[in-house]
Design a protein around this nucleic acid. Structure first.
Lengths: 343, 343
DNA sequence: TTTTAGCACTCTCGCCTTGAGAGTGCTAAT
DNA sequence: ATTAGCACTCTCAAGGCGAGAGTGCTAAAA
């Protein structure tokens, strides 16, 4: 389905115009708004061809044209070109991150906020986590009574904590001793290797080891830990979500962990770090996303720790701006991961 | 504005019916639906009086009556009586919490989920935090390079972590030593007392002390730490939020931390643990909540650690069910706080 | 004095019609 | 290959209309 240059131009203009106005665009409007040197009749003929080719459609006989999902895909792949955020926007964003200090939590929150604000859509950010968790350091801390806080520092620098309840109170000294022993034994090992050590140990140590392995295993899921969200109300501002039902379906994706998990697990693995993936209209796979588009990016250092960021908005979204924002923020977060692991 | 028994009955029936059907209720419908022994004409007269008194209003001349916000307030205060969740519902919920194990994070998430599900509205839950933070135990852990993880265990059992970056790498031994020293010095002290110790110390110790005091100070805000939310999409199902604008205004309250902070700081302090506060239609103070009602509860152990839970829904919400759910869940979470602090 | 039946009145809501406007596709001329 | 012209189609907003629901008032009944 090859398009000639003029058809490409018209398709691009229709999509740009529709993204801006949310109104079906007609041949006359197109000629007038963009000062084309051809008549509306010619545009009509070309539009007819584009409709035939499946890139445009008419909501009804006498409305203008609206891009189909296939049209958007063609646009994103072939017509959009490589866009980038303006320099001063980048500087502003970098500055915000710089001011956020060294707190991972704050960075994640800020990333979600920036994505939501720049793209005027909903955003999500997952914390970085290692593809295969390896223990770096273990600490056991008595909190109150028989409750013990287990803090695991992983290679990659992320930290997990987990409560455990002992059968009987144990002094901080004994706990520290146990933590030291286990740290020495398990340093640099993955979940399976750690579980293999289990039989050699007894009592407290064995319980702890099992917990560690459990926790490390759990983190292998794509969606472990907290998901940061922002801009949920942005999508309610879009005219295509004026009706509550549509909005509900879209926001459910973000609210229901299980849907999100499915989405991420099926897409993230095929996205390389630094790359950006665009899902338009659910791509036939996700019923819930039929009215949405998703722009996903991956950040971090492969083999060390990676995370996912994304934007969910209406299909009629400004892909250029969104994609560049996702790419840029992913870059910043990758820098953070690198920095956290720098000696 | 005293009401006689029959007026109270009619007011209560109108409100109950309206909550169920979301339709203005007329005199005839009321008599037929509830088998009243009086005629519709009498009901009309009483309704007229209730309208005069400001508890009911008519959307237009020939519609039925709808409760005013004042009407809802009267209902909640005087007419509703004390409601409680059915025994089997309580058991189901308790069971869910029991299965969640000992993970605070999971409990919070579950609490939000239960609140949202039971009340079919949006919910929020803040983690328990002490009214005045006191340090119980400090641990310093080398993660990578000059990055050090500071873990603070507070009296009350909650745990905070904070990254700090040193000027130069320090061995784990030295860190552990420093942590021990500081723990000994600061155990049981509040933020101000800890800051008072600062001059006696030098170098690393002093930096750490300052960070601790900062962190403890920060937690004095009502809304420190994570806010757990759930059921945001529930409010989109309500007919009063079918229009996106109304929904947007309502959800903004939950999304924007600053609004939430304002809301909590002005109400939570006047709510005692175990008590439930009901805000109807913004109470004239919160423009954003004009179309919503909020049911807030407080849980925990005063003086030790407390937190807030709440439900946000349409004014036309089932107050009985919501209030009992909030009360019950608050009770469960209070038990958790007690248990976490039990020796 | 309180309650009720009866009735005229008002207002909304859904349905239909109608006309304006926008956009198209086709045809014939350039 | 392009374009002007035109008939055609369809939506959308506005206006009209009747049904239905609910009220308030009045006069009779309890």
């Amino acid at each position: 389905m090859e398009l000639d240059d003029r058809q490409k131009l018209i398709l691009a203009l229709v999509i740009r115009d529709y993204i801006e106005t949310a109104q079906p665009v007609g041949s006359k409007r197109l000629v007038e708004a963009y000062d084309l040197d051809i008549s509306s009749a010619t545009v009509r003929n070309e539009m007819s061809a584009l409709t035939e080719a499946g890139y445009l459609r008419q909501p009804h006989t006498s409305a203008g044209r609206v891009p189909t999902e296939e049209g958007y895909r063609y646009f994103v792949r072939q017509l959009m070109g490589h866009t980038d955020l303006p320099q001063h926007t980048k500087r502003t964003i970098s500055h915000q991150f710089y001011q956020a200090g060294h707190d991972l939590d704050q960075w994640m929150r800020l990333a979600a906020s920036v994505l939501a604000h720049q793209s005027q859509a909903a955003s999500l950010v997952t914390a970085p986590h290692p593809e295969e968790a390896r223990l770096k350091h273990l600490e056991l801390i008595a909190t109150l009574g028989r409750q013990v806080l287990m803090v695991m520092v992983m290679t990659g620098g992320d930290v997990r904590q987990q409560m455990l309840v002992l059968a009987e109170p144990v002094t901080q000294e004994r706990l520290s001793g146990a933590a030291e022993t286990i740290t020495r034994l398990c340093q640099g090992l993955g979940a399976r290797a750690i579980l293999g050590l289990s039989p050699q140990l007894d009592g407290l140590d064995q319980d702890v080891i099992r917990l560690i392995a459990d926790e490390m295993d759990r983190s292998r899921a794509v969606l472990s830990g907290e998901v940061y969200r922002d801009g949920l109300t942005n999508v309610l501002a879009e005219p295509e979500f004026a009706e509550a039902g549509a909005a509900r379906r879209a926001l459910r994706v973000l609210e229901e962990r299980s849907i999100l998990e499915d989405l991420l697990s099926r897409t993230v693995l095929t996205t390389h770090v630094g790359g950006v993936q665009v899902l338009i209209g659910g791509e036939g796979t996700w019923e819930e996303l039929r009215e949405c588009s998703v722009v996903l990016g991956r950040y971090g250092v492969p083999g060390l720790a990676t995370g996912t960021i994304g934007v969910i908005g209406p299909i009629r979204m400004s892909y250029g701006r969104t994609i560049s924002t996702v790419r840029f923020v992913a870059g910043l977060l990758s820098d953070l991961v690198v920095e956290m692991n720098l000696e």
